[in-house]
């Protein structure tokens, strides 16, 4: 596949936003159980939610560049019964609305407990909205990943590992951003978020590594022989019916050499996993406020490489019809 930057930015920005939001809610639930100190509603959760919305907005903005006819984008919510793309189009604004309400409730200090669990755990509006928004965040993760995992012709994607990768990579980048955010605000939760970022980083490394291995050893179902229905092992394409390429050659080929692919693969493994892990550990050891920010910047850059590689490594069976121009 040809990696499109609109989709690369869309999926990585959404992942960061969802991860950051889940980090905020995780922090709030932990403080509810008195495991970590409670944070200020307006400055921490309000600002945090605003940051989530900024990332979601940027992602939504970049998604329009993928469409040939962005002015008709509103139509894309209609086929939610069958299309994961349509489901994502619904899940994204729902999540944005819930994040907005979550941030608003915190900013307006609507902290009066509506009811209490046990003796002293007061459940206020933000906790309830946070719960629903968290569910929406996971639904959005699943929708985004299933857009790719549901295409059965792309055997590299058609696996639950695709969903796991989107979730874990989104979570680790979001929690790293949460660590950077708290470091910037001077809040004592850097190591809390840093720990979870490292946890999801390891989980993401396992699933992404697994999918890399799976894709290397994958046996493709279609061959030149099944493509044209001639039962012979030696089928060579001599012409493809166009001399200057066409949509099929532009959309489904990345046009890069094996060496470039290899370089991108190692680059993203280093930038997404190795460097942030070292930086988060160093931040824990030195309590430097800058290291988590650098960790996030490096990891996000790495995720761009990762997503590029995700598209490039998928081989579409239609490529069998476009092996040679003339």
């Amino acid at each position: 596949m040809h990696p499109a930057f609109s989709v690369i930015f869309l999926t990585t920005l959404l992942g960061v936003a969802q991860g950051l939001f889940l980090a905020l809610v995780t922090g709030q639930y932990y403080s509810l159980a008195n495991l970590i100190p409670a944070q200020d509603s307006a400055t921490f959760y309000g600002m945090g939610s605003f940051l989530v919305l900024v990332f979601l907005g940027l992602g939504l903005f970049s998604s329009f560049f993928h469409l040939g006819r962005p002015e008709r984008a509103w139509r894309s919510a209609t086929m939610w019964r069958t299309s994961w793309l349509s489901r994502e189009v619904i899940a994204l604004p729902v999540f944005m609305c819930l994040v907005f309400l979550y941030g608003l409730a915190h900013y307006m200090q609507w902290n009066e407990p509506m009811f209490t669990i046990g003796d002293d755990v007061g459940i206020d509006l933000t906790i309830i909205i946070g719960l629903f928004a968290s569910i929406a965040a996971f639904v959005l993760f699943i929708c985004t990943a299933m857009i790719y995992a549901s295409v059965r012709f792309m055997q590299e994607w058609h696996h639950w590992l695709t969903v796991a990768n989107y979730i874990f990579l989104g979570l680790t980048s979001g929690f790293t951003l949460a660590a950077a955010f708290t470091a910037w605000r001077g809040i004592e939760l850097v190591n809390f978020f840093g720990f979870w970022a490292a946890f999801f980083l390891v989980a993401g490394l396992v699933t992404r590594g697994w999918s890399l291995y799976r894709n290397v050893t994958l046996k493709h179902k279609s061959t030149s022989s099944t493509a044209i229905g001639v039962r012979h092992n030696a089928v060579v394409q001599k012409s493809q019916g166009s001399m200057g390429g066409n949509f099929n050659t532009r959309e489904f080929f990345h046009g890069q050499s094996e060496a470039v692919l290899k370089l991108v693969r190692y680059t993203f493994l280093v930038l997404v996993f190795a460097v942030p892990a070292v930086l988060l550990a160093a931040a824990w050891a030195t309590a430097s406020p800058y290291l988590p920010m650098i960790a996030f910047a490096v990891q996000y850059l790495g995720l761009l490489f990762e997503r590029w590689y995700f598209f490039a490594e998928a081989k579409h069976p239609q490529n069998l019809y476009y092996q040679s121009i003339a």
Binding site: M1, L67, G68, R69, L85
Partner: peptide
């Protein structure tokens, strides 16, 4: 109605 998202071609 087509928005040119190319998903069908995939």
């Amino acid at each position: 109605k087509c928005i040119g998202c190319k998903y069908c071609s995939w």
